[in-house]
Design a protein around this nucleic acid. Structure first.
Lengths: 151, 151
DNA sequence: TAGTTAATTGAAAATAATTTTCATTTAGCA
DNA sequence: TGCTAAATGAAAATTATTTTCAATTAACTA
């Protein structure tokens, strides 16, 4: 479950941004996909529905949405930058299949112990973290097994 | 401490790659820096010492070194892609200062519990993970405090 | 509800990042 | 030393991202 349209609109408005059809469209595409999408992929999908929208607008919208924490940037999956809808549960991370790119969220990472230790040892004030696991998802594992068996 | 030159040469050779002066130069630059360097920054430094080396070669070398695990890719620090020497301790991660870009390594992340849980719950075969903390390093914290005090 | 204005948009151009191609050179083995 | 596959550099091609600017529009105000 993602933020409701209303909630998102309210967050945008509160931060001084306007609610435009273009921004709605980008949000819709991202929230409808369970995958992470590159800016180009988002543009392509949005463009099908609203041919007049430009790639620049997609980039600008992604920047804003990411800044507000409504979507999140993913890095591991091959391409350098792609986006996912942010689930409302505060803190969460991703499991990314290195084969098919599927993304699974998980919530409780419990890095607080580690964080505290690092803060103490390195004299760092820790603000955030990026945690992504990569591996093979259930389907790809199955597929690989079948391939192996077929040989 | 990083891998010795010999160790690195041996790893390269074993993987069927030749030891060229260009590759040495790239490795030297990365191992001499305690910071993460973008491909462009690496090129610039290498180029000062060996003006005949091309940016393309730097890219190609980075790909190989990263593939072999001799250097690692960092993502958080503003620019999308930058590289650091891989320290020999098997498993390690980074603390990245979001202000000055300083990178501090740490080793024991102990994510194995989490990994096992995720593997079980999501039916994933976990191969690796990307863990980076971002925050303010000791120096930047100090600097900020001074700034605040000055106001 | 119309008028106003600052924010937003799209198109084009500019810039930056990365990859490909291909002729030439070279590391490392026989 | 000679051979060969791998590596290199230069240029061009491709891809990704940002900037600029005139035209449009969301949302507030009267």
């Amino acid at each position: 479950m993602t933020f409701t349209q209303n909630k998102i609109a309210s967050i945008l408005r509160h931060s001084g941004y306007k609610i435009t059809p273009q921004r709605r469209a980008v949000l819709n595409i991202i929230s409808q996909s369970h995958d992470h999408l590159t800016p180009a992929a988002i543009y392509e999908k949005v463009h099908q529905q609203h041919p007049r929208i430009g790639l620049v607008t997609v980039y600008r919208t992604l920047d804003i949405l990411a800044e507000l924490g409504l979507i999140c940037e993913v890095h591991s999956g091959g391409s350098c930058r792609s986006y996912l809808m942010r689930r409302p549960a505060e803190h969460h991370h991703h499991l990314i299949c290195s084969d098919c790119g599927a993304v699974i969220d998980f919530t409780d990472c419990d890095l607080s112990n580690l964080e505290q230790r690092l803060a103490r040892e390195a004299h760092f004030e820790i603000k955030g973290h990026l945690l992504e696991f990569t591996g093979l998802c259930r389907d790809c594992r199955k597929r690989m097994k079948q391939k192996k068996a077929a040989r």
